[in-house]
Design a protein around this nucleic acid. Structure first.
Lengths: 207, 207, 207, 207
DNA sequence: TATGAATGAGAGTTCATTCAT
DNA sequence: GATGAATGAACTCTCATTCAT
């Protein structure tokens, strides 16, 4: 039912999501949705929370498999830029934009976002710490880096979610990796193979 | 009337803005609002467009007065990070979040955003070009810089609009300027005086 | 529209009255009902108030035409006991029962009832004062009389509204007049003609 | 469960009582309430019936202990006017108002009320007969007295249940006893001690 | 006997939009 | 141009009731 709510939100946005849509998608009656979630807002907020948790869990799962800090960072960037295969929940980026707009006037949602954001930053911090420890990365203030880098990724997420004709997933991914490699002092080569294998290329993307 | 619409959107968001609210604020009847704008969506989209134009105009006006490229860039960052005094339209950042979320499902709004974004990037590109020409800045690919830097500023805008307890206007401003100075090779000192004079400090901001 | 609300309440009771019913009866849309009255409760309360006012106005109108105090009192009793021809708003007694029940949990309605009740008592007090002044009535404490007599009439109103098989309008009317004549010391003969002309006799009434 | 229904009705009224409320109060599931009573209306009607029976039983129990007819009548009046200590079911008067309103449109409830009313009148009749037999009371038509007196008590019950600022329990009790003593020819002194001991005094009552 | 899950049938209310004036 | 009146089309939420277990 939360999954149904998630899908509906991706399609219609937080404010446009109707209980009936969720009920239809879940194959139950609208009354049952209320029976479990008490109100529309609670349902959608809960779905947001769960969606963020799933995204984070998927990210952790992937990162855990990768030995190098640089590789882990690349994976995080790949997921954020939608340059990455299966397992990434459909519509995550779109949901972020809704999450941010909703958080402006909804304290519950705002708390969900803050929690997620801090988790995201901490993930980056930890990767940087690890990289410094293994001497993959040069020494930097990991907190400052995390703050700026997560902002950068959020910014790219907007362009990608909105299918900006100038800044698409590929370009954002490359740009983000270039920034990271320069600031953290590791070498990174754009791997054409990887990007070619991705099904996420936006045809609208220019140049 | 567009101004009224803008204010209502800042308060209630794009989807929450009601024609009645706008009419009340403008001191006219709801019927008249429709009479002029034909429909609610057209009104709000128009107000969005105008708001973005105003923001851009204000930014241009300010930049025009500043002789150095670094100074112009700093002004742009200051406006984006809400670390800057009067003249910045109230609630601009909040409106951006609404704009992005709305752009997901509304082609008109999406076009407004793309246009604005490109204008913003071009402004940065031009400043970088100027700075390189006057040798204030070291040589960089101005397009790559503009793409990444505008994304960074968008990312900070989110944190600031949502009053993130960790990343507030001050910290975002400093971080953004540090990134710029490092990449463009100019020197920049955090000027306490400036920040102290700003009324925009968020008390929630940590550290 | 208030009249429509009144009729619906007579038919379905305060809690059973639906906005749709009122709208249908008034020949308008439900939305218009809300447009004017803001909420269902406000509409029904207002209708109650107006109904009571109309009843009181009709009573005053009738009493004004009658020269003797005893005659005026009889008219009041006749209206209360529904032993009286045209002009009495349909369903007044039924509405009283709803009014009382509603007043238990609704302060607005409670205030309406208190106001009406006090007006009713004052009417009786005044008639008694007049009757004493003209020596139609013997001297009594008009306040005590009014309190007890209005209670008696309320009690009969219940029986009549509920079409009690033992206590119908005729019997209640006679009983009430007998009490009044005894306590106020005037002579009163049951006038068969009057009762016979009334169309209000309940066929269910026994004996 | 009937007791739970009774309490809920006192609090929320007949139309406002929800099965869920009753179930919660009884500590069972809503489904079980329906299982036993078949429908909401049957439950509430049954609870009404039982409540009236309990009230009548309590009244009989009390009256049985009192040797004089005048004392028995006083006890009946005391219970009706809520000027009487423990053992009177909480909220009886409030329930009467709901009963009357409900009886307007519900034949089952109407029958309950008629039965109760007739029982009440018969009780008064019997007391009067007894009093005449023992020469406590002067000779009156006991039927006429019962009809009028029960109406009077119903009327006072309304004022008391609605906490009328002018007519509270004390005043109603005194007034009712004065009427009885005058018509039945027995002497009655307001006993301050009794009233003082009662916890039912309404502070809102005037004078 | 007892219940959690499920639902159908509304109910009130909201709100963009229309239209006669 | 300007508005008050009017409405249609939703939408959320409520609640008695059913049913499988």
């Amino acid at each position: 039912m939360l999954e149904a709510a998630r899908r509906v939100m991706v399609e219609r946005g937080f404010p446009g999501a109707r209980i009936t849509d969720v009920a239809d998608r879940a194959g139950v009656s609208p009354a049952l949705v209320i029976y479990y979630f008490k109100s529309k807002d609670k349902l959608l907020t809960e779905a947001m929370r769960q969606s963020e948790d799933l995204w984070y869990a998927e990210m952790s799962r992937r990162a855990a498999k990768i030995p190098s800090a640089a590789g882990r960072l690349e994976e995080v960037v790949a997921m954020t830029c939608h340059v990455s295969g299966n397992g990434v929940p459909e519509g995550s980026l779109e949901l972020w934009l809704d999450l941010w707009a909703q958080a402006l006037r909804d304290q519950e949602v705002r708390a969900v976002r803050e929690e997620f954001d801090e988790r995201f930053r901490e993930t980056i911090r930890q990767i940087v710490r690890d990289g410094i420890a293994t001497e993959e990365f040069s020494e930097v203030d990991e907190d400052e880096f995390a703050v700026a880098y997560s902002a950068l990724l959020d910014g790219f997420a907007i362009q990608i979610a909105l299918e900006d004709p100038v800044v698409g997933p590929e370009r954002a991914f490359d740009a983000a990796m270039r920034v990271a490699s320069r600031q953290l002092g590791f070498t990174w080569e754009a791997r054409r193979a990887r990007r070619a294998s991705s099904g996420r290329q936006r045809t609208r993307e220019a140049r």
